[in-house]
Simulated assay, not measured.
Amino acid sequence: MVRKIMVVTAAYGADRVREAGGQSAILPVIAAGGADGVEIRRELFTPEELNALPDLARSIEGLDLLACYSAPAALFMPDGTLNPDLPLYLQEASALNALWLKLSLGQFHDKKPLEHLRTLLSESGMALVVENDQTDCGQLAPMQRFKAACRVMALPVTLTFDTGNWLWVGESPEEAARHLAPAVSYIHVKAAVPHHQHFRAIAPDCADARWMALLEQLPGDAPRGIEFPLEGPDLAAVTRHYVNLLREE
């Protein structure tokens, strides 16, 4: 099995991406680093770039990269209804030829909106993955409730497991993996260490063995996304180092 490795454009830093000329300008670095694909971040777009998604899709395809799409938004609103912008995000993901759209969970109250969600996903043909974020909604209990509801309703929605975010919400990443692993289809890889009153993301080989061991608890065939800082004078070389590290069995 050759594990797919995606690189999140935000790993290079928002300022670096902007100075380079946008996410399209980072693509050659990701390709030179040997990655299989790129996670495009909606929050890094200018309005003009957001209106040129087909051009970006062609650039991604031209470098033989896969794409996924992340929007900084929750699937469910504070009142428990579906995010009204979900059709827009699905449309944007389709314009990018993305393999999936990634959102955070938000306020999941009950199963009422899930049939509507099923319809929207069926109409769009886009896969949806839901991530544990750094808010209370990203704690284990709500993620478990959502996972269980999707299973009961046979809803085609899976989870993104962010290895580091659990610490931000006071949870054990290992315990979360034990409960959620069967539903995980994408892994956001980062280690996290205490920093002032919170945490900061670092590369897993710059931390203790906990973080690489955690990956062994998660599905071996799930693509891994690099979301820790990628820094240095030769970004392609740094990228290649971590692509190779995370591709290892």
Rank of each mutant, 00 (worst) to 15 (best):
L140F: 00
V129D: 04
G125T: 09
L121V: 10
K102T: 10
L101R: 06
Q107F: 05
D133R: 01
G106R: 00
L99C: 07
A148P: 01
E115F: 11
D136T: 12
L120I: 06
L114D: 10
F146T: 01
K112D: 15
R145L: 08
R118I: 04
S122R: 13
L155C: 08
A149N: 04
V129K: 08
D133F: 03
L140T: 06
R118G: 12
C137M: 13
L114M: 11
E123V: 04
M126Q: 15
L105K: 04
D136P: 03
V152N: 06
Q144Y: 00
A98K: 03
E115G: 07
K112M: 12
M153F: 04
N132W: 01
Q144E: 14
E131M: 05
F146Y: 03
A127Q: 15
G106P: 05
Q144H: 02
S124I: 03
P113G: 10
L105W: 07
F146G: 00
A141H: 06
M126L: 15
D136I: 13
L96D: 08
L128F: 11
P113Q: 10
K147T: 15
T119C: 10
C150R: 02
R151H: 12
S122I: 01
S122N: 12
L101S: 09
F108H: 06
L121W: 03
Q139H: 04
N132K: 02
N97P: 02
H116I: 05
D133P: 02
A149S: 13
A154V: 07
V152P: 00
L120P: 07
